[in-house]
């Protein structure tokens, strides 16, 4: 081994850097976030799995339709009732708490949606 005094420490730093998540979490995977679901309602705008994966795209589409084309249509169907395309007036009617619903997963996954740049979050 030549220059082992420099190369081996360098290699150790590299390995520690690559395995950083292992040292950072220290074997604790943490709890999976459980957003608080509304008690009265069982159905949402889309089926459960689609809502989990695609709600941000849906909200983005609503935002574009409402703000850019002025289409405030009451064409969101949940169960048998029609609702308005609206974060505050439709989504937040059931999911009343931002902290107990939105933030639980968003904090876990480090997602910072910019909904609240314009909308005023409910006081909690």
């Amino acid at each position: 081994m030549y220059d082992g005094g420099k190369i081996i420490p360098g290699l150790i730093i590299f390995v520690l850097f690559i395995t950083f998540p292992v040292w950072y979490n220290r074997g604790n995977a943490g709890a999976v976030p459980q957003p608080e679901l509304p008690k009265k309602f069982k159905e949402c705008v889309l089926p459960y799995a689609d809502m989990r994966a695609e709600h941000m795209q849906l909200l983005n589409r609503w935002r574009d339709q409402v703000l850019r084309t002025g289409d405030w249509g009451f064409d969101v169907k949940i169960g048998d009732t029609m609702y308005q395309k609206s974060l505050m007036n439709t989504c937040m009617q059931c999911h009343t708490s931002k902290k107990k619903f939105c933030d639980r997963c968003h904090t876990y996954a480090s997602v910072k949606p910019y909904c609240w740049d314009c909308h005023i979050a409910p006081v909690e």
């Binding site: 998540p21 995977a29 799995a49 989990r52 994966a53 695609e54 996954a109 997602v111």
Partner: peptide, 15 residues
């Protein structure tokens, strides 16, 4: 995006 559940993905990655 269908089936891309970021919470399940993060749970797997942290796991």
């Amino acid at each position: 995006r269908s089936g891309v559940d970021i919470i399940a993905i993060k749970r797997l990655a942290v796991g």
